[in-house]
């Protein structure tokens, strides 16, 4: 098993945190999974699009970057424009439809739309939009145990703002349900 993910969005939307939480979970909650996290590096990190690659595999990982990912998560329009081509045929684009107001032009990939900000606002804070997207990815791929991911999120994010833990968990669960339903 080798699964690759590309995440793109504006700096500040939680793109890096989303990718890192997946990796922390795979690396620390399992004994043997190989995991790489590779952030985009350069001037575009300021204000423009931020993106990162996540690879989770049962065997040694070659390049931490892929030309074509199994899944793409997009948090904004520029990321959809820029990375739509970087999905394998038959792969999936998971879209934050609260921000992305256009359709992918690709016809050979699946699309899962998550109104992440609406969901986050309903739960109490737009800040947890990335937890909704994270939940959607985990629900869609079934790659990691949702309880493991939530425990990881609590460990990594709970220290600074413990009051966000219930909100994070609720956001993750809501995303997970939509992602899980979309995979069926």
């Amino acid at each position: 098993m080798k699964r690759s993910l590309l995440i793109g969005g504006f700096g500040g939307q939680g793109v890096m945190v989303t990718g890192q939480l997946l990796c922390y979970c795979a690396a620390e909650e399992t004994e043997d999974k190989q995991v790489t996290f590779f952030p985009s590096y350069g001037a575009e990190q300021r204000g423009g699009t931020a993106n990162c690659y996540v690879i989770i595999s049962d065997t040694a990982i070659g390049s931490p970057m892929v030309d074509y990912a199994d899944e793409l998560i997009v948090f904004n329009n520029p990321s959809l424009d820029k990375f739509e081509e970087c999905v394998k045929p038959g792969g999936t684009i998971i879209i934050n439809s609260s921000v992305v107001d256009k359709e992918p032009t690709r016809k050979d990939v699946k699309t899962v739309k998550i109104p992440a900000i609406e969901i986050a606002l309903k739960l109490g804070s737009p800040k947890v939009q990335n937890l909704v997207m994270l939940g959607a990815y985990v629900g869609y791929t079934g790659l990691l145990d949702p309880e493991d991911v939530k425990r990881t999120a609590e460990k990594k994010l709970g220290g600074k703002r413990p009051e966000f833990i219930p909100l994070n968990n609720a956001a993750f669960d809501r995303g997970w349900e939509i992602g899980h339903a979309a995979a069926r």
């Binding site: 890192q20 190989q34 995991v35 790489t36 996290f37 590779f38 952030p39």
Partner: peptide
């Protein structure tokens, strides 16, 4: 190189 210095691994 800049790949290994910026990437994360277990």
């Amino acid at each position: 190189d800049g790949v290994i210095s910026t990437m994360m691994e277990p």
